[in-house]
Amino acid sequence: MDVTELSERIRANDPAMGLRAVGALHRLAEQVEALSVAQAREQGWTWEQIGDALGMSRQSVHAKYGK
């Protein structure tokens, strides 16, 4: 689903379409977050720095991505 299709679904009066768009946005956000965390770690960022940037605790970020 591309950005144009997402925008159309969000503006539609059909809740099912809007909810599917929300799901797609959540999946995209998770992918971007995971890639960004991996890049930050490769560049030497600490879990605390990453957590601060995401508005999370370092423990939460480490639990989610530290494996």
Rank of each mutant, 00 (worst) to 15 (best):
M1K: 08
D2R: 05
V3P: 03
V3G: 07
V3S: 12
T4D: 15
T4N: 14
T4Y: 15
T4S: 15
E5M: 12
E5V: 11
E5Q: 14
E5H: 10
E5C: 06
L6T: 04
S7H: 12
S7L: 15
S7Q: 15
E8A: 14
R9G: 05
R9Q: 14
R9E: 10
I10C: 05
I10N: 04
I10K: 10
R11I: 10
R11S: 12
R11M: 14
A12H: 14
N13A: 13
N13C: 11
D14F: 08
D14R: 08
D14E: 13
P15I: 09
P15L: 12
A16T: 15
A16H: 12
A16Q: 14
A16I: 13
A16Y: 09
M17E: 11
M17A: 13
M17V: 09
L19E: 11
R20F: 04
R20V: 08
R20W: 03
R20E: 11
A21E: 00
V22F: 05
V22G: 03
V22M: 06
V22R: 06
V22T: 08
G23N: 08
G23D: 11
G23Y: 05
A24R: 06
A24M: 06
L25R: 01
L25E: 01
L25G: 00
L25S: 02
H26L: 13
H26I: 15
R27M: 10
L28H: 13
E30T: 08
E30S: 07
E30Y: 04
Q31N: 13
Q31K: 13
Q31C: 09
V32L: 09
V32F: 06
V32M: 09
V32T: 09
V32G: 03
E33D: 06
E33I: 05
A34R: 10
A34F: 03
L35K: 13
S36A: 14
S36W: 03
V37G: 00
A38N: 12
A38V: 08
A38C: 10
A38S: 14
A38I: 08
A40G: 04
A40F: 02
R41V: 05
R41T: 04
E42F: 10
E42A: 15
E42H: 11
Q43A: 15
Q43W: 09
Q43N: 14
Q43V: 10
G44T: 04
W45C: 12
W45P: 01
W45F: 15
W45R: 12
T46F: 02
W47C: 00
W47K: 00
E48N: 09
E48H: 08
Q49A: 06
Q49N: 06
I50T: 01
I50D: 00
G51V: 02
G51F: 02
G51S: 04
A53I: 07
A53E: 07
A53L: 08
G55D: 04
G55W: 04
M56A: 08
S57T: 07
S57V: 02
S57R: 03
S57P: 02
S57I: 03
R58G: 01
Q59Y: 13
Q59P: 02
Q59E: 11
S60D: 10
S60V: 09
V61D: 00
H62M: 12
H62R: 15
A63L: 12
K64T: 07
Y65S: 03
Y65G: 01
G66V: 05
G66F: 05
G66T: 05
G66Q: 04
